[in-house]
Design a protein around this nucleic acid. Structure first.
Lengths: 237, 237
DNA sequence: TAGTGGTCTAGACCACGGG
DNA sequence: CCGTGGTCTAGACCACTAG
């Protein structure tokens, strides 16, 4: 683990331990430098990480403050879109109902997003749910080249954990193309909604460390249960 | 303008001038340092900026590459969500039809997002369109404290340009809460759709340099015309 | 005008990719 | 093993906020 990641983690712990709330002030940079015995640049990297995660914000000439946009009542129901963490880290007791699982050459629309013409791999269709609530219908394609093996057992659990732990495949960046549409009869049935109901459809392309796309997914969210959240920040470092 | 912003701009120009495409390689960092006669840290900041904007990606031990996710055919129709740039920079000939414009004490739901209880300011309801196509129904609230003056003329143009140029008010960061719903009769009429049609509804909270929220907006997108796009990256600097 | 974050430099050494 | 990006240091100076 990098030094700045460790420092970021410690600052986060500091916030929790001291029960800091929205807009509470953190120690100044020079103090953080002294406390953690690292250089200013390392502190800045740690703060950049926390800033990117929406945990802090900095005001030049004033200080560093706690930012917890989701801390408001019921805001924790929102699923973050900007960090590439899985659903499983947000929703408790997440179950994955596997609808389809097979190997194939990908359809044209998916090839286009992979920027390939004849890529092969696994197709996985799942309904992700928590007890009675369905959250999302997921149709994913994983390239054989980067993901040589999958099994029904893996697909029933957290695929991204498997990719990270067993295959050492990291998400480096992703693109999301979002549209809103009316559910088809089949989609509605799987999400336990009515045909014609509204839905957010997201085409998600995930890239690994080498810059190659390894996963293209079409996500159709249940409009009654899935609320999404995203933050953006104009600052760097 | 900061040095790293100038360098970032020049690198972008370099990409355009040399007609670099997706996955084409850029000069290595040491060369960029030599070419621009700045330190490595400054180059890294410039690259971070470009990375954040989805223009480049870096692969350790390999190089720096061009990333243009929207370059694919018809992808330029997508409106970016992650950068806090206005609609007006994406859609040509954007017209703003003002539906309502007044001063008021904000309703409770808006106060909650501002984290206030009795904030006052301007309410602006607009339909943003391009000729025959409606894109979004926007219901915005601007705090009097940060935005002391607005006029019908300003509201017909680009409000964010006015805030930036006349009031020197910068967006520092923002939160977006997204849900999908069915349009009410009134919303449908304004967006020239049918009641019950699907829509993406986004509550957007904008914060200025001082960390205070100055604008809360409810955006209801036309599902036929508005396609959204967002990128994320797990890397820093 | 003091305090605090922001930018920039120069240079050392680490870690990963690919021949 | 070499080339390339990634992390880290120490320190100078700039720019903004707030009393």
């Amino acid at each position: 683990m990098k030094k700045y990641q460790i420092v970021a983690k410690k600052i986060e712990e500091y916030i929790k331990k001291n029960h800091l709330k929205q807009d509470d002030k953190l120690p100044k940079i020079t103090d953080l430098v002294a406390d953690f015995k690292v250089s200013k640049a390392t502190i800045l990297q740690a703060l950049a990480l926390l800033n990117q995660q929406g945990i802090i914000y900095k005001i030049q000439g004033s200080g560093i403050f706690v930012r917890m946009p989701q801390a408001g009542d019921k805001m924790n129901e929102y699923i973050p879109l900007n960090t590439n963490i899985g659903f499983s880290e947000v929703i408790h007791d997440l179950q994955n109902e596997v609808v389809e699982f097979k190997e194939m050459t990908f359809p044209d629309k998916i090839q286009k997003l992979f920027k390939t013409t004849d890529a092969k791999g696994y197709k996985v269709v799942r309904v992700r749910r928590n007890g009675k609530k369905t959250f999302v219908l997921e149709e994913s394609y994983y390239r054989k080249e980067q993901v040589p093996f999958m099994s029904l057992e893996i697909v029933r659990g957290s695929i991204f954990n498997y990719l990270r732990e067993a295959l050492d495949l990291q998400i480096r960046f992703s693109d999301k193309y979002m549209t809103v549409k009316k559910l088809t009869a089949e989609e509605a049935k799987l999400l336990e909604l009515e045909p014609g109901d509204p839905a957010l459809q997201v085409y998600d392309v995930f890239y690994c460390n080498t810059g190659e796309a390894f996963d293209v997914s079409k996500l159709i969210y249940n409009y009654k249960n899935a609320k999404l959240f995203t933050e953006s920040s104009d600052e760097l470092i």
